[in-house]
Amino acid sequence: MTVLYGVITGVLAATGVYLLLSRTILRVVLGLAFVSYAANLAILGAGGLTLNAPPLLSLRGPHVDPLPQALILTAIVIGFGTTALLLTLAVRTYQATGRDDVARFDDELNELGGDLDDPAADPEHPTNPEEFHPEDYADGPVIAAETALTPEAEKEKS
């Protein structure tokens, strides 16, 4: 059983790493999910595998060590949060760059002739500077970086 378990964990980790190495944002996110599942299974395996042994004292023994399961529970909760964050980030990145290709973030921006830190490289995105009205976004998510330019400083510079 341990060998089979180990193989499964390994396959999961391999799948995750394979997906991580691809260039599509969503695959990278899925790859990370696979890797974290593999990590959780690895903890369970490292803690020792037993059949028909509950981790609860209220049930009849023999009992299994509950600590690895507690560790996994914590790791799952943290993994859940970080995956949610990563998905949000992926969506925002897609919207801002108009690309779901990690490796082409830079090329795409260069092709558009824009500055890399231009807040909206996607011409159709609502944050495109030409149509950007800060008051429309007063209560929305933070989108564009405000620059440090004050009118009088700009005048002095020129």
Binding site: L116, D117, A120, P141
Partner: peptide, 8 residues
Amino acid sequence: GGAVGQLR
């Protein structure tokens, strides 16, 4: 802040 450089 979500500037493109930050997201990338």
